Structure formats: structure tokens, C-alpha cells
Measured scan of single mutants.
Amino acid sequence: MALNTPQITPTKKITVRAIGEELPRGDYQRCPQCDMLFSLPEINSHQSAYCPRCQAKIRDGRDWSLTRLAAMAFTMLLLMPFAWGEPLLHIWLLGIRIDANVMQGIWQMTKQGDAITGSMVFFCVIGAPLILVTSIAYLWFGNRLGMNLRPVLLMLERLKEWVMLDIYLVGIGVASIKVQDYAHIQAGVGLFSFVALVILTTVTLSHLNVEELWERFYPQRPATRRDEKLRVCLGCHFTGYPDQRGRCPRCHIPLRLRRRHSLQKCWAALLASIVLLLPANLLPISIIYLNGGRQEDTILSGIMSLASSNIAVAGIVFIASILVPFTKVIVMFTLLLSIHFKCQQGLRTRILLLRMVTWIGRWSMLDLFVISLTMSLINRDQILAFTMGPAAFYFGAAVILTILAVEWLDSRLLWDAHESGNARFDD
């Protein structure tokens, strides 16, 4: 018995066209964080690309023209004298008006014999932002004059995390709450300039795509075929072959399989920071003279006294001054041990922890910024005066060393310790 099946006739004509040209192939790229070699397709503007294995951002879609970056830099340069030299806060102490600005706080630190601690604050609040705007201006002028731009481009990517104007702005709020127990506070004209400078700096850093600047100024022929001998440069993120001198053909720094002496430098910085954190938390970090009496505060006791007036601000200072430094030390110690013992479990967790400490590390400088600003506000000789204690130097040095330890660690070593050939990683 035959089955009668109805015929289905399409209502619209289906047209099949042959592909007349070869589909576009992607360029081969190595991930600078996990060293995976993959094919990167062509990316349009405002599109980002991520590593298929570790999800690290390979290409950032946010990109401004150099002219727009230069305009932002010149605007920031105009704001800087007002943000640093004009009063941020006014207080009335014992019937006398006192003005506080950024430069005055750094000068008070240096004047009291601790120039190293003052230079830490100076670099993060004044030096690094000033280098940022002058570097962008150098790129703008240098591109037109045919100057060598490689050193500036190499420095810009590392400079971003040292620009800490946003953290200093939080420190202004913390210092205001600490001082309000002794005097009446009012915002100064410099505060508005400083807030504007923070906003412009944040926007500029978020749109400063150094890798795209490398592509514009020093374009290189990408690798179009897969080759395990391809290496990625950690300076400019170019994937290719080393030249005859073993250097990256684009930025001219040595092109090595792994960062040289990464573990040794990381261990040295980490152990030194552990040693410095002990006096930083045991010795007094601030000293207040009130009517001839002397009151010393460690980091913890200062947080407890701050909690009596504002528990939320005390929580912020606790996280930045105690929780973050010790968390960074514990995480980095764990990561280094996992590399030495070739741990194969929990790779995803370790990668996330490394990215976390990379982002939060700079916030530990908050305590030094609060001390710097408070020193310029309260300084009335023996009637009422505020000065920093010996722990300030140890704390600042420990924070900087932990930042350097994270920067010096080559994250690809975590993958080397893991089993080879993993296309995915999980716990």
C-alpha cells in the first residue's frame, strides 16, 4: 500500500549564491595573561575582544583620537594649579581661619623630617597626573615632529594605576569627618577644581587605549598563520617573532617567553612588605597634641575612634588600611606557593584573586592621604596640633611594595603550573 505524501511548494523562490571570495581570516594573537594562541577576527570600533580561555580583555573598544586626548590633557593642565594650590577646605580653629590644600599637606610631611613619605604622596597625587598630561601632550606634538614615541607609550600603561586623584578625593571626605570634632569646616574653591580634575582624569584614563596608539604610530604586520613560536610582548602586546637582537619589532624591548626574574622580584617585594606591615600596624601612625597632652593612634585605634562619629567612614578606612593590605599579602603568598608547588586545582579562583588584588591594591594609600591633609588643617603649635607617627613611612612603603609585587608577577606562570593543553579552566 503506497502512502500519498503531499508536496510542499515554497511560496518564495530560494536563491543560492556561491561564495565568490575567501572568507576573511583572523590574525593570530597570544593572550598576555595566559599565553593562549588564538585567531582574533577583525574588530570594529566600539567592540571589545576577550581571550577565549581566561576571559582577559585583549582589545578595548573604547578609543579616543589623539586630538581629543590632547584637549583633555590641556584642560587638566589648566585645572591643576587651582586643584593643588587653592584651598580645598576652610576650618575655623580657636577663632582663626585655616586653609588646607594639597601642596601644603605634602610640605608639612616633608617639613617634619619625613621627606620619603611626603614624596610618596607627591608622586601619586601630583607627579603621576602631571606625567600623564605631559605624556599625552608629548605624543600629540611628537607625532607631528617625527619624534620617538616608544618610551612614552611604554610608560603610559604602567602609569595608570599610580594616578590616585580619586583616592585622594575620598581622603578629603575622611579628613573632614575627623577634623569636624575640633573645628567648623567649609569647602574651599580649590575643592571644585579638584573634583573637576578627578572627573576629567577618570574619563581620560578610561578612554586612553595605549594598544590602539601603538597600532597608529607603529603598525606591524600581524601573524596570519598559526605558529607556536609566536611570542607576545608584555610592553606593547604585539604578537610576532623577535628581531635579530631578540627584541620586539614594535617597542624594541627584549621579547622573552616569560617575564625575567618574575618570581624572585615578586618574592622579594612580598617578604619586604610583610616585614614592614608589622611596625606599620604596631607603631603610632598619627599623633595629636591637645592642650599640651599627647595622644597617639595606631591604624586600628584611629579607626575605632573614627567609628564613634561615623561608622560608615570608619568601615571604608578599615577596608583600605587593614583589610586590603593583608588580603593582598595572603593572596600573593598563596599564588606564589601554588606556582612553586605546581598546583593544578582552583586555577579559576587564583586568576580571579590576582585580578582582584590588581584592582584594589592602590586604595591602601588612602590613610597616607588623610594624614597629609589633616596635617595641613590642624597645626596650632602646642594648643592643638596633628602630626604623623613613625608607622606612616612603614605603611606607605608596604603598600608600594605590594603594588610592585602584583605588577611583577607574570600571570602566565600560573598556567605553566597548571596542566598543559587546557582550553578551559575551572575549579
Rank of each mutant, 00 (worst) to 15 (best):
E296L: 13
R259E: 15
A312H: 14
A391W: 01
V121H: 08
V170W: 15
S286M: 02
T387C: 09
N281M: 12
L79P: 04
A71M: 07
G146C: 05
V102M: 10
T134A: 14
D227K: 15
Q244N: 14
M1T: 00
F341W: 10
I19E: 10
H237Y: 14
C343D: 12
Q186G: 07
A320R: 00
S206Q: 14
L200W: 13
L257A: 13
W415D: 08
L197A: 04
I339S: 07
P52R: 11
D381I: 01
A73H: 12
P284L: 03
Q47T: 05
S262A: 13
F122Y: 15
K265F: 02
L89A: 02
H207I: 15
R348S: 13
L197H: 05
Q244S: 12
A71K: 02
I303Q: 03
L290C: 06
C31L: 00
L306G: 00
L234N: 11
A183T: 04
W162R: 02
L278I: 11
P222I: 14
I177C: 13
R250P: 01
L404N: 14
L93E: 01
M80V: 06
P284C: 10
D181R: 01
L66D: 12
W64R: 05
L94F: 08
V198N: 14
L37P: 08
Y218V: 06
Y241I: 12
L373R: 01
L306T: 00
Q220P: 12
Q295G: 08
F333M: 13
V313K: 02
S65C: 05
T201S: 09
I339Q: 09
R348I: 12
T298S: 11
L282N: 13
K111W: 04
P279C: 15
F326A: 11
W363L: 02
S308F: 08
E407G: 11
G173M: 09
F38L: 08
I288K: 00
R256V: 13
N148M: 03
V174I: 14
I351K: 12
M109C: 11
T134P: 05
M103A: 04
I43E: 09
M375W: 02
S273N: 12
V16Y: 08
I383H: 02
N291G: 13
Q180N: 11
G302S: 01
S411G: 06
D410W: 00
D27P: 14
L191Y: 02
E42N: 06
A71Q: 03
I299T: 12
G118V: 02
G113S: 11
D426N: 14
W408V: 06
V121D: 08
T5P: 07
I322K: 03
S262V: 06
Y28C: 07
T11H: 10
P284Y: 05
K328S: 00
G421A: 15
L78G: 07
V121R: 00
V210P: 15
Q220H: 12
K13V: 07
L300M: 15
S376E: 14
T224R: 13
A307P: 02
S45E: 07
F122Q: 09
M1C: 00
L306A: 00
C236H: 00
A398R: 02
M332F: 13
W359E: 11
T15V: 09
S193A: 14
N44Y: 08
R424V: 10
A2Y: 04
I403H: 02
P6F: 07
M120D: 02
M109P: 02
D410R: 00
M388G: 06
W140F: 14
R216D: 13
F326L: 08
N281W: 05
G361L: 01
D63N: 14
M155R: 02
R260Q: 07
L384K: 00
R412L: 00
V179E: 00
C54R: 00
T11Q: 07
A314Y: 11
P284R: 08
F318S: 12
T201M: 12
R258D: 07
